[in-house]
Amino acid sequence: MSATLHDIGPVLALILVGFLPNEVWRLVGLMLVHGLDERSQLIVWVRAVATAMLAGVLAQLILSTSGPLASIPVGVRIGAAALGFVVFLIARRSVFAGVLTGESAILLGTYLFAP
């Protein structure tokens, strides 16, 4: 059960544990909406669920405690996101300005505060 990358090689591993477990959700989504209308209440609800999940992805990335993202202090991540958002609001909702500020803050904060 505990086969690793070295047993099957990188390409087969990519397909079996990268592509397939990821793609299955897209295919299930495709099959489920067969015949449903854009304005149906079910789709309105599904859209709200998708939007909330997107916020969940954001929260996970900002607060994550494992993987390469975790090497940057969580205070730096939250602070940079907040700063970027403030600039986004000040700059009349410019996504470019907000993203650039937030990313610059991450880079600067990483340089200053990372262990």
Binding site: V33, I43, V49, L54
Partner: peptide
Amino acid sequence: VTLSSVRFLPMVAAILP
């Protein structure tokens, strides 16, 4: 991987219609 990708189900279901 599969837990990180659940979001694609509602996303695909919302955009295809």
